[in-house]
Amino acid sequence: MSPLLDVSNMRVRYRTAGRLASVVKRMDDPFIDAVCDVSFSLEAGQTLGLVGESGSGKSTIARALLGLKDIAEGSVRFDGRDLRSLDARSFNAVRRDMAMMWQDPVGSLSPRLTIKSLVTEPFRIHGREGRDLDEEAARLLTMVGLAPDFGARYPHQLSGGQARRVGVARALALDPKLVVADEPTAGLDVSVQAEVLNLLSDLQKRLGIAILVITHNLNVVRHITDRMAIMYLGRFVEQGPTQAIFDQPRHPYTEALLSANPEPDPDAAKARVELSGEVPSLRDRPRGCEFHTRCPHARDLCRTVAPTVTKDAAAHTFTCHFPLLPPQPSPR
């Protein structure tokens, strides 16, 4: 069976100078590649986590999938159709099956609409009138664990966790096949964060939706995703089953990212891999391996030759000349 979402060699570019400016300044290439050569697939009912620091291109992938940003190269197949070949009208029809949960739970809700009109807005946009919107609103709010009388409230009357639930209800209104969740727990306290994550897992189990989670929070990724991909400067440096990557990261950047996750334990062994310096600019990508400027293991080869993708069993891929050692088979 072909996967629900299949992305191969996707490239997304942003223009950094206007058309005129780029001519005047004689810029050869007035673009930056925010997403570069990214490939992944996602099966129905599965969760993929995209992890990386600010500016690594995670949210750009989401925007490109949902048609909010043009894809420069590569192909995106969703539910058996090539999204790049569709005209606007047929894309809109496909778009119904993809829902987005935005990063800012309160900011993504219009302050002047009631919760009821917010959760039923997808029906109005996608022309599925004829349904009883009151009934639908009550159904959706109940599904995400809010009392139906929340429908009469306005976004400012909700707490962060409640607003997030409304975001989930909106995303699920049209029974999508794919939900893209951009930082679903940003700004939430740990106790509320757990509620939202449990809700997502529970709904996934019941409805069989595929979820693409974008986050920098590794604790979230560990608990709710099946597979994860680590991004650096718009590229995947490592991708594979979540548990395998947590057990033994193969790329030094993944290792550093995992170890930069402070344990809530004062006596935790702090085997920390420290990265020096800061993320380079996308306008001026380092030569060779793009991570070599910060990599603790960088050697001469890394400074000149870009590494290729290595693939081991279980579809665990990584892009590194000198990958960390794979786990030794345990004696048991």
């Binding site: 620091e53 920098h216 930069a260």
Partner: peptide, 8 residues
């Protein structure tokens, strides 16, 4: 801040 910068 991002995780690796937070640690720094």
């Amino acid at each position: 801040l991002d995780a690796t910068l937070e640690v720094q």
